[in-house]
Amino acid sequence: MQTVVANILAQIESVVIGKPHQVQLALACLFAKGHILIEDLPGMGKTTLANTLALTLGLSYQRIQFTSDLMPADVIGVAIFDKATKLFQLHPGAIFNQVVLADEVNRASPKTQSALLEAMEEGRVSVDGVTHLLPEPFFVIATQNPMSHAGTYPLPESQLDRFMMRISLGFPSIDAERKILQSITSHRDVMDIKPFLGVEQLREIQQHIATICVAPAIVDYVIALCRVSRQSESQAKVLSPRAGKSLLAAAKSWAFIQNRDYVIPEDIQAVFSPVCEHRLAPQQHHIFEQADEISQQILSQIDPTNPLF
């Protein structure tokens, strides 16, 4: 199982150069059955990452480019009267895929956004009163531009909460940038990506992650972190129990990627910022600064060896 993971990581890293941490985070998120939001400036490789991730998983995959005139029906699908059967027949939209890449999700109108996000939460869609189940597994990889960019509709907090993680890639290092510039990048490379994982294997991995040990001390740590976010007066946003649950799930998945069958506080600390920052500070204004300031503050307040005191 670990070799598969290593292969996946190697492949993604060969395309998304110099960002192993973010790649691992993204993978951990998908293993933990969470949706992921990648936020960064245009041209930082968001789409490349999302694309590679989707292709590597070897699942059915569709990309939706969100624009301001995209309608909910374009995402979900539309019921059309079939003359032959004399019935309304659903013409499924892009969302009826196992992996959906929602590119530049904040360029679409709120209505379209909420259609997507509702589907993410419920795992099903209703068209003209008929409920259709979405395929299993179902992942959404969304990318978005920073809020300050023109023509964006910010995602409301309630909808941000549905993403397990929000990550941003950041600028590459000098070496990585050199490599990026020197490589003859083309879409053909992306096409070369081999799927390493089938549905069965993915399910296996997810089952294995479920068995990863979470000691009481770790649960205490998560509780303490959530509680301390609620105590501070300066913060309007707090960590809900769902956030704690996501945190634990992500940490387990992270531990799996680190080839460990138990969670340690370092796992929590590694995933804390991507899992919690967008719940604590939904509107990220200063993308170039140290973005995850609030989550670092919270982390610094809790002693992982003795969390509840």
């Binding site: 340690i264 506080p265 370092e266 600390q269 982390l299 610094s300 307040q301 809790i302 002693d303 992982p304 060896t305």
Partner: peptide, 10 residues
Amino acid sequence: VKARSMTAQQ
């Protein structure tokens, strides 16, 4: 002194 947020390993 251990910084508060340091884990045992760190």
